[in-house]
């Protein structure tokens, strides 16, 4: 909030650009975070670029290539759930015995929400879909 000085306000004018030490420290901390953000950026950015390439391959129906790229990203970011799902979707779409088994291995023990399921299910054959168990129905 910012307000003009009220009538009769009796106070000294503050010296311009003279900030309390803790405010300077806070600004320094924010600057350090910005620098750290840029230092950490290349690794994550590369993963995002690779994932985009995987999406492009998928759109061109090059499912094997798409899966390979997504699996490489997943290897470097094993906790990336969206990457896991994209890899599984590409493998299901490739639709060979090996790729379907590999996709099932990727999803073993994973909980999929209704949005994940909506994304993945069309890539699966009905027999594969039957192998998934509903653990809680959505409202």
């Amino acid at each position: 909030m910012c307000q003009s000085v009220p009538e009769g306000y009796d106070s000294q004018v503050l010296t311009p650009h003279d900030y309390p030490l803790w405010v300077k420290l806070f600004a320094g901390f924010a600057a350090v975070l910005v620098i750290a953000s840029f230092v950490k950026l290349p690794g994550f950015l590369n993963a995002a670029i690779q994932l985009k390439k995987s999406d492009q391959q998928f759109d061109q129906k090059n499912y094997a290539e798409s899966a390979q790229i997504a699996l490489q990203v997943l290897k470097e970011n094993p906790d990336a759930q969206k990457v896991r799902l994209k890899a599984a979707k590409a493998l299901f779409s490739e639709n060979t015995d090996d790729s379907v088994n590999q996709a099932m291995d990727l999803l073993k023990g994973q909980k999929l929400d209704k949005y994940d399921w909506k994304e993945l299910a069309p890539a699966m054959s009905p027999s594969v879909q039957k192998q998934f168990k509903t653990i809680k129905e959505d409202d």
Partner: peptide, 19 residues
């Protein structure tokens, strides 16, 4: 935008909440 730059990629684009 600048502070979250690197964190936003794994969090929003990769769905990597753990790392």
């Amino acid at each position: 935008s600048l502070i979250s730059f690197s964190a936003a990629i794994p969090f929003f684009l990769l769905g990597d909440y753990k790392s």
